[in-house]
Design a protein around this nucleic acid. Structure first.
Length: 485
RNA sequence: GGCCCCAUCGUCCAGAGGCCUAGGACACCGGCCCUUCAAGCCGGAGACGGGGAUUCGAAUUCCCCUGGGGCUACCA
């Protein structure tokens, strides 16, 4: 797996890494990570860290690569420039590659003209025709140049793609592609081949967007007389409009999902299923199960739309399966980040026990840890307003203020302030008022939380504590009375 | 435009000639449970892009069309 650090770890890249990892684990192979930083203008340390962090967070551990080492390093292309130079010089010496003195500006200009004439925009190979003397003269004169691969005029290249089957490209459809840029950095095409060979890579599993890079890579293997690895091109992850998923479609970085409160195991599980299936109807699977079931045959050929709804569902499943301890440990940082913990509500004291109770009360409802923050906010902050619809339905009712006053009185005398006691009190109150339990419960809920939805009322009130409940009930009562005037 | 790839419910997958009156999951709709929401349970609606061909028989094989996507840089 060889991501280039020119952006945050993308969902697609993460899935490719996951497939590589599952494949390696399934077959007892070695999963190699390499940083493809051959574009020095776009690569950055920050992105590299984001990628490494993201992969580790997802549980995709590499056996060889940056930070862990290995016997076939370096694992960063910027650190092995001399090696690429050596390969290029060999190709140059054998006439399989040639220096090109055309400037990027000239090339762009010619491309534009060809397009205008309705021709495919290709390199005209003019530097291929230069004589040896001319080349030496230009090089001696210090003219900057790139090195291009001399693609044969006819014939074709083909390979048996492990996902797609037989794929073939005609040579005459191929440009004389650049192997080394004028700045001495290799292009992707050269670097991957050299690295894959040096690192003894047996299988290359990558996105379909690189399928057209394959014939050119194959030519380099041929020219170097190196054994070819196997190729498997997996379909792309699509946006809802079925185009390649990109930033304009919303969150595409793994780190963004992490920040939103998705669990790594849920995200990994979901992403794995985008384009792969174990062959049966299993969906929620552990890493071990996926490793066991993984095969390239199980990978589909068509692009998969990233459906956030299903991810949300799956995240909810994982959230609910967490043990209380794990769940609280993972959720807490989100509360802290939202500054809910540590500030606000005077009573009861916001301590570990309180936080745990609050969190557990909402475990079933949250789809993400980020969403959880909103769900539990009222446990830390008194309601500043009341749900509009709820207000119309419960507060504008005849006798709402009286109901709240009666509830205050009744709850004030409870000892202990427990679920059972509260339930008995509230139900008793309904009876006294000649009402069904529903209206009473809903009115109290709105008063205590500002909301119409949430955990069971009795449980919620117990956690909030008597004192706090009474304060809120009084505030709501006053609010209702004032609104009635 | 050229080259390459793809084509089953709205979405993700199952299906590798008869087991398919096409199965599962998300979403959607209805019901149950119930103090609300959520969860859970039960049920419903919903697809083989079109046309040829091969075959006793095609979602599954072949061809054409159509549609979608990717690539087309001294990016990767």
């Amino acid at each position: 797996m060889a991501p280039s650090p020119t952006g945050l770890l993308h969902i697609g890249t993460a899935r490719t890494a996951l497939y590589n990892w599952l494949f390696a684990r399934h077959h007892g192979g070695t999963f190699v990570l390499r940083i493809e930083d051959s574009d020095r203008t776009r690569s950055s340390q920050e992105y590299e860290e984001n990628i490494l962090d993201g992969l580790r967070w997802l549980g995709v551990e590499w056996d060889e690569g940056p930070e862990v080492g290995g016997s076939f390093g370096p694992y960063r292309q910027s650190e092995k420039l001399a090696r690429y130079r050596e390969v290029v010089d060999g190709l140059l010496a054998r006439g399989l590659a040639y220096p090109c003195f055309c400037t990027p500006e000239e090339l762009a200009q010619r491309r534009k003209e060809m397009q205008k004439q309705g021709l495919p925009p290709r390199y005209d190979r003019r530097c291929r025709a230069l004589s040896q003397e001319e080349r030496e003269r230009l090089i001696a004169a210090g003219k900057p140049h790139a090195v291009r691969f001399a693609v044969p005029d006819d014939g074709s290249v083909a390979w048996n793609d492990l996902v797609r089957g037989e794929v073939e490209f005609e040579n005459n459809a191929l440009d004389d592609f650049v192997l080394m840029k004028a700045d001495g950095f290799p292009t992707y095409l050269l670097a991957v081949v050299v690295d894959d060979h040096d690192m003894r890579i047996s299988h290359i599993i990558r996105g379909e967007d690189l399928i057209s890079a394959t014939p050119r890579q194959l030519h380099i293997y041929g020219a170097m007389e190196w054994p070819r690895p196997e190729f498997a091109h997996i379909p792309l992850i699509l946006a809802p409009d079925r185009s390649k998923l990109s930033k304009r479609h919303g969150a595409t970085a793994i780190s963004e999902y992490r920040e939103m409160g998705y669990l790594p195991e849920a995200l990994a599980n979901f992403i794995a299923l985008l384009g792969w299936s174990p062959g049966d109807d299993r969906e929620v699977m552990t890493k071990e199960e996926m490793i066991e079931a993984f095969s390239l045959e199980g990978i589909g050929k068509s692009g998969a739309v990233f459906d956030i709804e299903k991810l949300n569902w799956m995240n909810g499943v994982y959230l609910r399966r967490l043990t209380p301890e794990e769940y609280v440990a993972r959720a807490r940082p989100f509360l802290e980040k939202a500054a809910l913990v540590g500030r606000a509500c005077p009573r009861p004291p916001v301590d570990d026990q309180y936080i745990t109770k609050v969190l557990l009360l909402e475990q079933e409802r949250a789809k993400t840890l980020g969403e959880l923050v909103d769900l539990v906010a009222f446990f830390f902050k008194r309601p500043e307003s009341y749900d509009e619809k709820g207000e119309r339905k419960w507060f504008k009712r005849e006798g709402a203020a009286e109901l709240l006053a009666a509830a205050e009185k009744k709850l004030a005398s409870l000892e202990p302030f427990s679920v059972e006691q509260i339930e008995a009190a509230v139900r008793g109150l309904a009876e006294e008022l000649g009402l069904k339990a529903g209206p009473v419960i809903h009115t109290i809920r709105l008063a205590a939380t500002g909301r119409t939805k949430g955990p069971g009322l009795f449980e919620l009130l117990e956690v909030l504590g008597k004192e706090e409940v009474l304060v809120r009930l009084a505030a709501a009562r006053e609010y209702v009375q004032k609104a009635a005037e």
